[in-house]
């Protein structure tokens, strides 16, 4: 059953907004020349040009510079998959990639897949199958799921693919293996697989 009841959490006003920045004298804001770079890429179809510290990961560029916080930081070390985004159509861990190494790339994040009221079929399937709980790994799971179905379609094999020389076929076992780079500590796996199978047009 669908529901349009609202979570009104986003409208919380904050007294803290009124607080003005007071940067103490002597604070050093500058970053030495040569240690920042300009980078231009597309995010969710929009051109973006950023001047960032060379050290800034794609993940932090999305979250802290572009305020696209749908992409999550769970571990910052490529161990959880919460930061999964698609770059030029391939899923990657955005935490283990420098922003400045994405010149000219096309990045798609969870925000680019759909929005409330206009969900991507995979987002809708996650809602329908309750394929999430706390929601923190969810954007990464969804980005990964979308890419996984493309990978199977493109014939990319996996660890559980039986015959490497045969055409890769959809199966729940294939989904589970391919999604294993996305941890969900709430343990929604069983439902996530149902959601993906639903989108793939296969019975769960």
């Amino acid at each position: 059953m669908a529901s349009a009841a609202t979570v009104a959490a986003s409208g919380v006003a904050s007294k803290a907004r009124a607080q003005q920045a007071e940067v103490p004298a002597g604070a050093k804001i500058g970053i030495p020349a040569g240690e920042t770079s300009s980078v231009s890429f597309k995010v969710n179809g929009q051109d973006q040009t950023l001047s960032v510290d060379n050290r800034t990961t794609l993940l932090d560029a999305l979250r802290e510079h572009l305020h696209l916080t749908g992409t999550k930081k769970g571990c910052d070390h490529g161990q959880c998959g919460a930061c999964t985004v698609m770059v030029d159509g391939r899923r990657i861990n955005s935490c283990l990639s420098l922003a400045i190494m994405h010149e000219g790339d096309e990045v798609v994040t969870i925000e680019g897949l759909g929005e409330p009221g206009k969900l991507h079929p995979m987002q809708a399937a996650f809602v329908k199958h309750d394929g999430y709980q706390c929601g923190y790994c969810t954007p990464g799971q969804i980005c990964s799921s979308v890419a996984v179905l493309e990978e199977i379609k493109a014939g990319m094999p996996s660890h559980v693919t039986g015959d490497l020389t045969a055409k890769v076929a959809f199966s729940l076992e294939e989904i589970r293996e391919r999604m294993s780079g996305n941890l969900c500590r709430c343990g929604a796996y069983s439902n996530i697989v149902d959601a993906i199978a639903d989108v793939a047009g296969r019975p769960a």
């Binding site: 490529g78 998959g81 999964t84 990657i92 861990n93 990978e151 996996s158 693919t161």
Partner: peptide, 16 residues
């Protein structure tokens, strides 16, 4: 070689 690669890391990491 295919088998060893596919046993490693995750889909996201193998793409990079």
């Amino acid at each position: 070689l295919s088998r060893a690669l596919l046993a490693g890391a995750s889909g996201q990491l193998r793409n990079k």
